[in-house]
Computed example of a mutant assay.
Amino acid sequence: MVIALAVPCYILICYIIGHYDEKIGFWQIENNLSYRFTPYSEEMLNTIREIKKKLDREP
């Protein structure tokens, strides 16, 4: 009986949280701020640039 009530409540709570996040964008804002505190390393940026150059050269 408890499981029969818990599953619909869980789905409803997840739906409400998802709907709230779409309107407010809490997790999107959090992800945008995470770059400020943990920026990409210079080595990683150089590797990304090299890969981009290789992809641009290929037809």
Rank of each mutant, 00 (worst) to 15 (best):
M1P: 07
V2M: 05
V2P: 05
V2C: 07
A4F: 05
L5H: 09
A6L: 14
C9T: 05
Y10H: 08
Y10D: 04
Y10P: 01
Y10A: 14
I13V: 10
I13E: 05
C14Q: 09
C14Y: 05
C14G: 13
Y15D: 12
Y15S: 15
I16T: 15
I16D: 06
I16N: 00
I17R: 10
H19G: 13
Y20N: 02
Y20R: 00
D21I: 04
K23L: 12
G25N: 09
G25A: 06
G25M: 02
F26A: 04
F26P: 00
W27M: 11
Q28S: 12
Q28C: 04
Q28L: 10
I29A: 14
I29E: 06
E30Q: 06
N31K: 13
N31W: 08
N31M: 12
N32A: 03
L33P: 00
L33R: 10
Y35V: 12
R36E: 09
F37P: 00
F37A: 12
F37D: 06
T38R: 06
Y40I: 13
S41K: 02
S41N: 03
S41H: 01
E42W: 05
E43C: 00
E43Y: 07
M44D: 06
L45F: 07
L45T: 11
N46E: 08
N46M: 13
T47E: 15
T47R: 15
T47F: 06
I48M: 15
R49E: 11
R49L: 11
R49C: 03
E50S: 02
E50T: 10
K52N: 08
K52V: 09
K53A: 15
K54Y: 03
K54A: 15
L55D: 03
L55H: 04
D56P: 07
D56G: 02
R57S: 13
R57D: 14
P59H: 10
P59C: 02
P59N: 09
P59E: 07
